[in-house]
């Protein structure tokens, strides 16, 4: 866990410094210059933060659903604790992805919200998290709460591939990789990134994933303590 903790701090600090400090130039001469995209200008730097946060949201959702599935199979309450902790972090990262995305959209596309397919997807993910927590608060017994919310997150998970693979082709959008994109529509956004940008971007992905693992372990540990305390009290 030490490796995860310091690794995430180190990587995110590095990405924050390099992502902001490295100058951009229309004709990059060395590895210490990013190419300047004429459309995005300096705003392109957001890619080091917005995309990894969105990626972590998906990771958190998958982890939460996986632990929900484990709970169904074993009925071990610890898996429910892990599942709900991951979902809580998922909600946090989902909000961050929505906000960073909306700000970027305001400056590049003109308004905070455009109902672009990827914006729609993240909005739906927010709704799923909202529904997930609404369901949890509507069930009184612990076992039932764990079971029902696990089933719901798996059912919601079934629709996720449709958002990733289907919606971008179906709806016209502004994100790269949407219907009508000259580079071709598809699930994987075709980044036209230079080598050095890609390295920073990749490190950012790893950094944010490690951050998620670290935060998850913290949350799970506090949740276990709270659980033990509430048993003690009752």
């Amino acid at each position: 866990m030490k490796f995860v903790k310091y690794g995430s701090i180190l990587l995110i600090t590095f990405v924050a410094v390099v992502g902001v400090a490295v100058p951009m130039s229309a004709t990059p001469q060395s590895w210490l210059e990013f190419p300047l995209n004429p459309m995005l200008q300096q705003k392109a730097r957001n890619i080091f933060f917005h995309v990894p946060v969105a990626w972590t949201t998906v990771v958190a959702f998958l982890v939460g659903t996986y632990y929900g599935y484990r709970y169904l199979k074993t009925k071990n309450i610890d898996y429910d604790i892990r599942s709900v902790s991951a979902a809580g972090l998922g909600l946090l990262f989902c909000t961050l992805a929505t906000v960073t995305g909306a700000i970027w959209a305001k400056f590049d596309w003109g308004s905070f919200w455009n109902w672009d397919p990827r914006q729609t997807s993240i909005f739906v993910l927010l709704l799923i998290y909202g529904a997930y927590f609404a369901l949890r608060s509507a069930v009184e017994t612990e076992e039932k709460r764990g079971t029902l919310s696990a089933v719901y997150s798996i059912i919601a998970g079934i629709t996720v591939p449709f958002f990733i693979f289907v919606m971008p082709r179906l709806m016209a959008g502004l994100h790269p990789g949407s219907k009508g994109d000259p580079d071709g529509a598809g699930p994987v956004v075709q980044f036209t990134m230079s080598g050095n940008m890609f390295v920073v971007f990749f490190l950012a992905l790893i950094g944010f994933t490690l951050l998620f693992i670290w935060l998850l372990s913290l949350r799970v540990r506090t949740a276990r303590l709270e659980y033990a305390q509430s048993i003690h009290r009752s």
């Binding site: 729609t120 739906v124 709704l127 799923i128 529904a131 609404a134 369901l135 719901y152 059912i155 919601a156 629709t159 449709f162 958002f163 289907v166 919606m167």
Partner: peptide
């Protein structure tokens, strides 16, 4: 609960 599932 239904709306997010039915959007697609």
């Amino acid at each position: 609960l239904s709306f997010p599932i039915l959007i697609v």
